[in-house]
């Protein structure tokens, strides 16, 4: 059973590695975007799904990472890959400093506080005009080479970031600390009297998430070669990320990534034809997920699809 899943997973990865040699242009971009979301959802899942802290504003670290790469490549002429450790580091520093006060909050108080953090950082970046270009945005050095080569380059880099996030998530799920995080998710008091230093572990979880999301942001900045505060901080990113985690299942390692694939590909295939109502469909889709699939598509339909299962959430949670 486990082996079958493992084989499927590696087959999937091999297909993704071979794909760029048969597809091109548009689809390479779409998949790169999908990997981007896969990386964000997977990275954020350590704090959100494993630890149970709905870090809605985790995208803050995406934006920070994007700006770290942006500023380091433009103002300090640093090569792209060399900036990525700094993206991770900035995420770790900010989350550790903020973690101590903010992770004391629970449930939606925490969720909203992280949004507050995100918006505050956004405003700060917006106002640090000399360094970040403020609202005008920041143009990064463009990579040299054939467009096809550049597409492939970012395809593989983004795939790499996503798989790296996945690997970290997998490791966390296996080590001692992973057990502590899941204990915290269910019952923080019980976890603490069992000897788990809950503030420390929560901060650890958030820092790892922040680092991974930060790296993703760095790659994003170099990929698009233009960033501005309003696109990299917030927008629909937080809620899309959350929807992906929910859709795939937040307690699993691979769920958020699959959630990202499902949502991003649906988005691309179906909605690109209806640009005008794209946002409305996104809203409806999120409502749909919360109503019918909050446990994730795989958990809900374990052992086969049926319409009855689709309504089990409503039966459990209606007033």
């Amino acid at each position: 059973m486990i082996n079958k899943k493992l084989i499927l997973f590696f087959a999937f990865i091999i297909i993704l590695i071979l794909l760029p040699f048969v597809i091109s242009g548009y689809w390479l971009r779409v998949l790169t975007q999908t990997f981007l979301f896969g990386a964000i959802a997977t990275g954020s899942n350590i704090i959100i799904g494993f630890t149970g802290y709905p870090a809605f504003g985790n995208i803050a670290f995406f934006g920070v990472g994007a700006y770290v790469t942006g500023v380091l490549t433009t103002k300090y002429n640093m090569p792209f890959f060399a900036t990525l450790p700094f993206c991770a580091l900035s995420g770790i520093i900010i989350s550790s400093l903020l973690g101590i006060p903010i992770l004391r909050l629970k449930g939606h108080y925490f969720a909203i506080a992280t949004v507050g953090v995100m918006e505050t950082i956004k405003e700060l970046v917006d106002n640090m005009t000399e360094l970040t270009g403020g609202g005008l945005g920041l143009t990064l050095p463009i990579m040299h080479g054939e467009p096809e080569y550049i597409y492939k380059f970012f395809y593989f880099v983004m795939l790499g970031v996503m798989l790296f996030s996945l690997l970290i998530l997998f490791i966390v799920s296996k080590i001692k600390q992973g057990y502590a995080l899941r204990a915290i998710r269910v019952d923080e008091d019980a976890a603490s009297v069992m000897g788990i230093n809950t503030p420390l572990y929560k901060t650890f979880a958030w820092a790892v998430s922040a680092a991974l999301v930060g790296i993703t942001g760095g790659v994003y900045a170099y990929w698009l070669s233009y960033i501005d505060p309003h696109t990299v901080f917030g927008g629909t990113y937080p809620v899309k990320m959350f929807a992906m985690i929910l859709l795939g299942g937040g307690t699993t390692v691979i769920g958020p990534m699959l959630g990202a694939f499902i949502l991003e590909l649906i988005s691309e295939i179906v909605w690109s034809k209806f640009i005008a109502i794209h946002g409305m469909v996104l809203g409806l889709l999120i409502i749909f997920i919360i109503l019918f699939l909050p446990k994730g598509i795989f958990e809900t339909f374990k052992g086969g699809f049926s319409f009855k299962k689709l309504f089990s959430n409503l039966r459990e949670n209606r007033l």
Binding site: K176, Y179, A180, R182, A191, G195, I196
Partner: peptide, 16 residues
């Protein structure tokens, strides 16, 4: 601790 088996629940105690 849901999501962990009975054994894993007890392991948390042993770990920490």
């Amino acid at each position: 601790f849901g999501g962990l088996t009975v054994l894993e629940n007890v392991m948390v105690g042993a770990f920490y």
